[in-house]
Design a protein around this nucleic acid. Structure first.
Length: 255
DNA sequence: ATGGCAATAGAGTATTGA
């Protein structure tokens, strides 16, 4: 089973990229963030035609998440039952016996801002929900755009980013505490090349200079981590015309 | 230090993202 997370930064703009990528990469489950589409505008027919069933939860202009799957999608839950949130950032579903959460963690904008406080409160509530889901599902995965780089090696210039949004100590601590529930970062289960990132700023040729952050993650429960055979970031899409600023992350789970 | 780039809403430019 191949699991993917990809922040597409507007599914309207990136639908052709997604379809092109799926054709070349016939994966089983794709967690999409930043669809930026209300549900009535969701491109359901196109994704069905590509062979995927879809659950989605969107809003106008911002946020919006979706789960694509070749297998039937069961027990869909929108949003965190432990946190009242008008923003559409979370979607849970059971697919092939695996409980999956698709997450778009708030950006936080700037350390100390209202949005930063929202990010941390939101994440704490996510922790509560994930604990409950993990207690109920041995095979559990949470994929998404965390907007947090876990370690210095996940940041192109740690000195420049130290203490700033996406790499502040409280953000990293919150992610660590979530993982302490028994989740493994699929990417770090394997030897990886140096300087692997999942996001690059559109500005100042950041991609060409590989000035990026690894902020998109696939976290796996023990039962899935011990079955995980590979994980990589697909940088190719970032080279395409009019790309998303994020690249897909792919994890392979064996039987 | 600021803005740089992109998407959206909506018709100028502001907001948000990361």
């Amino acid at each position: 089973m191949k699991l993917v997370t990809w922040n597409v930064n507007s599914l309207k703009v990136r639908l052709s990229h997604l379809l092109q990528w799926l054709e070349a990469n016939p994966v089983d489950v794709v967690c999409i963030q930043e669809t930026k589409l209300t549900d009535d505008k969701f491109p359901l027919a196109e994704l069905n035609a590509a062979g995927y069933q879809v659950a989605f939860s969107g809003q106008k202009t911002y946020n919006g998440v979706a789960i694509l799957s070749k297998l039937p999608i069961q027990d869909v839950v929108r949003n965190n039952p432990h946190y009242d949130d008008a923003q559409q950032r979370l979607l849970a579903a059971t697919i092939g016996g695996v409980r999956i959460i698709c997450a778009y963690v708030p950006n936080g904008q700037e350390v100390g801002s209202d949005k930063y406080a929202y990010k941390l409160a939101w994440f704490e509530a996510l922790h509560t929900w994930v604990a409950a889901e993990m207690a109920a599902h041995e095979r559990f995965a949470i994929l998404g755009d965390y907007n947090i780089a876990p370690e210095a090696r996940d940041v192109h210039d740690p000195a420049e980013w130290e203490g700033r949004i996406h790499f502040s100590i409280p953000e990293r601590a919150a992610l660590q505490e979530l993982m302490a529930l028994g989740l493994s970062d699929a990417f770090r289960l394997f030897e990886q090349p140096e300087k692997q990132y999942s996001w690059w700023d559109y500005r100042q040729m950041a991609f060409r200079r590989n000035r990026g952050l690894r902020i998109d993650h696939i976290l796996l429960s023990k039962a899935l981590a011990e079955r995980c055979t590979a994980c990589h970031i697909d940088r190719e899409t970032r080279k395409w015309e009019q790309p998303s600023d994020h690249a897909p992350v792919v994890a392979t789970i064996g039987d």
